[in-house]
């Protein structure tokens, strides 16, 4: 599970995040919403131990992400806003193996994890494809597979559906949902709430670096417009 305790983050005199408290249990699905520049990506970075909070601390399964980054990061899966930033292998299989290889796991374990992760995102047959041949949606799915191959207890996604067409979007969400049903805690930063009503357990709204809302998807509806998020007409949690 993830605990963000009293985290503030200031850089060059500007406050990016102020007094953030969040706890995400495994098996919960949390949406992180807010205007551009509200601090969503910075928060996700800090959770990964990228940058040190000015005050407060962040624990992943009890490991402090700053003082003990090894065990903490190995329990986090992250999908970046532009998955091209994180795809580090030349082929799909090589990329998904990147995390497990760096954890020093045995060849057999790595092979199993890669196979499982690829079939979990519906790309079991695509292992040998070059990364550069993938479509946008496929890139996101490979990035999710790469995260799942770490067997994380928490999965962080930054706008995973931005720029995808409808079928690509549906498929990405389906595979995120499946990971969530498998017991992983999910934090998804997004502007696009379509099709998320049935999975979301909580909605956290950031505004100018502060938590402006932390509510169930039903009560969140009234505040979403203020946070720059359009509520889909079909929203019925």
């Amino acid at each position: 599970m993830l605990r963000v305790e009293g985290v503030s983050y200031r850089i060059d005199g500007t406050t990016v995040l102020e007094e953030i408290d969040v706890a995400v249990e495994s098996g919960t699905f949390v949406l992180l919403v807010g205007h551009n520049g509200a601090g969503k990506t910075t928060l996700l970075d800090l959770i990964c131990g990228i940058g040190t909070p000015t005050t407060g601390r962040i624990l992943v399964d009890g490991h402090d992400v700053v003082t003990n980054p090894g065990p903490a990061r190995s329990r986090i899966g992250r999908v970046f806003e532009d998955p091209r930033d994180q795809l580090l292998g030349a082929t799909v299989r090589e990329d998904v193996a990147f995390g497990p290889e760096n954890l020093g796991l045995s060849r057999d374990v790595i092979t199993n994890r890669v196979d499982d992760a690829l079939s979990a995102v519906g790309m079991g047959d695509a292992g040998d494809r070059p990364i550069d041949s993938l479509s946008g949606g496929e890139r996101t799915r490979v990035a999710i597979a790469g995260a799942l191959a770490m067997e994380p207890s928490i999965l962080l996604l930054d706008e995973p559906t931005a720029g995808l067409d409808h079928p690509g979007r549906t498929r990405v969400l389906e595979h995120v949902r499946r990971a969530y049903e498998g017991g992983v805690g999910v934090v998804m930063a997004t502007h696009d709430l379509r099709d998320l009503d049935t999975v979301t357990d909580r909605v956290i709204g950031l505004e100018a670096g502060r938590i402006a809302m932390d509510a169930s998807p039903i009560t969140a509806v009234d505040h979403l417009a203020d946070l720059g998020v359009r509520v889909p007409s079909t929203w019925s949690p």
Binding site: I50, R73, E101, N102, G104
Partner: peptide
Amino acid sequence: VAMRTRCLSWNPTL
């Protein structure tokens, strides 16, 4: 940032 998050290590499985 991604490399750090994905646990780039000195002693991977080669």
